[in-house]
């Protein structure tokens, strides 16, 4: 499932050349918050790559089904996943969808999904790059 999720994440990556990967998140602060445990950060990256696309897919379905409460909870979870990496833009995009769902304005929430999708894709790409350049055991 993990590799499928990674493949799916790669498929959705549409990174503009002008965006520096590390501006999408802050590995130093994220690592400090995790008690300087690089192994744990690797695990969190794996979790993000596995869960974010599934959550995004579920979020779309809930919005389409008019289930504002559940859509809001899922958007909240996505926001939390992004905040683990100090990924400000992605966290903000998740928060905007959450707020719209909480307000019951699902049409607005739906209109915000492309931005969230784009942010999640960019973040996934940046996290994968970090993972490849910081493979465990390589120091």
């Amino acid at each position: 499932m993990r590799s499928e999720a990674k493949d799916a994440a790669k498929d959705e990556v549409k990174v503009s050349e002008s965006i520096e990967p590390y501006k999408l998140w802050n590995p130093d602060v994220a690592l400090r918050r995790m008690g300087a445990d690089t192994d744990l950060l690797h695990t969190m990256v794996d979790y993000f790559l596995e869960d974010s696309l599934l959550l995004l897919q579920e979020l779309r379905q809930r919005i389409d089904a008019g289930d504002a409460a559940e859509a809001s909870r899922i958007a909240h979870s996505l926001k939390g996943l992004c905040s683990n990496f100090e990924a400000e833009a992605a966290t903000r995009a998740g928060a905007a969808v959450e707020a719209a769902c909480m307000a019951g304005t699902l049409a607005e929430a739906s209109s915000l999904i492309p931005t969230l999708t784009e942010q999640l894709s960019q973040l996934s790409h940046a996290l994968m790059e970090w993972k490849e350049s910081h493979s465990l055991g390589a120091g």
């Binding site: 695990t43 979790y47 869960d51």
Partner: peptide, 17 residues
Amino acid sequence: DDDRSVCEMIRRSLEKI
């Protein structure tokens, strides 16, 4: 917590102490 990443972070951190 329904967020497994939060549960895992807490578990790894608290098991160290």
